[in-house]
Design a protein around this nucleic acid. Structure first.
Lengths: 148, 148
DNA sequence: TTGGTATTGATAATCATTTTCAATAGCAGT
DNA sequence: ACTGCTATTGAAAATGATTATCAATACCAA
């Protein structure tokens, strides 16, 4: 995805395309990891020493509002973020290790189907307009189990 | 569920049964709401003016460790809690209104079945030992939709 | 009743995220 | 390219939820 595409997306909603935003997006695009705001910030410091943590948060906010970013609450008050790319359109879910914080993605067709159905049901039954959902398993990952 | 039952559960793990803990449990039992730590604290202040917020957090911690409490992250850093009662053994899920914070419970048999299957799959496929899960929909509730 | 120790509550500390605000930089219009 | 408007930026302070500290208290086994 060429960056002028992102530029246009920002411009299209009256937002400006700036150097910090480009740096943040490049990082998010290039990584397949789920990163916290601070991880993103620290990673960017190397190539963009002037960037501020505040700006990271603000850009993540904008991306979330635009619907391009997925916020994953860890339950500790910290959140991790992942870009929603075309290839991940089929929503995937998460395994969160409560020991080391590692997040493992997985996809399950059955689940995705079920969620689509559930969305409809909830809309008609509870008058609830779904904007997002979280489906996460918490537990101990293989790595941490072997460590004890 | 008589309170000596709870007393025994605490004692059984080397914990003590105290007045603050009884007050907190009585509140959690009597309400059907999902409450935040601060809501619990403020509610208890009326009948137990000496109670401290710290104690509320600690008791919630113990209950969660014992497996009797469900922690629901709101995505804002705040958590809400609900007691796991016998009648809710069939795990239910949540609709969280991102506007007013309201949480609506719902149960879906299909979902519960699917989750049980998924737990098994994840264990064998990813070596992940599941301790808990969250299945939540975020959106705008009926009430808030009508307000605009 | 007593002694050991878990628990308590007030206070201070953390940690992630937001707010504030003056300086800067995009960019639309010329 | 120049200008002016205003969105954006980064530093610092503020907020809000949760956790750590610590001396005093209260369970409860013996």
């Amino acid at each position: 995805m060429p960056s002028h595409n992102w530029r246009n997306r920002f411009r299209g909603r009256g937002s400006r395309w700036t150097a910090p935003r480009e740096a943040i997006l490049n990082l998010l695009i290039s990584t397949s990891k789920h990163m916290s705001a601070k991880e993103i910030y620290r990673s960017l410091l190397r190539i963009y020493p002037a960037i501020g943590l505040t700006t990271v948060y603000r850009t993540l906010d904008v991306l979330e509002q635009m619907g391009y970013l997925n916020k994953i609450p860890l339950g500790t008050g910290e959140n991790k973020y992942e870009l929603i790319t075309d290839s991940s359109e089929t929503h995937h879910h998460h395994l969160i290790c409560t020991q080391c914080g590692r997040i493992i993605d997985y996809t399950d067709f059955e689940e995705s189907e079920l969620i689509k159905k559930a969305e409809q049901t909830l809309k008609t039954k509870h008058g609830f307009k779904i904007t997002d959902y979280n489906f996460e398993f918490y537990g101990i990952c293989k790595h941490c189990q072997e460590r004890r």
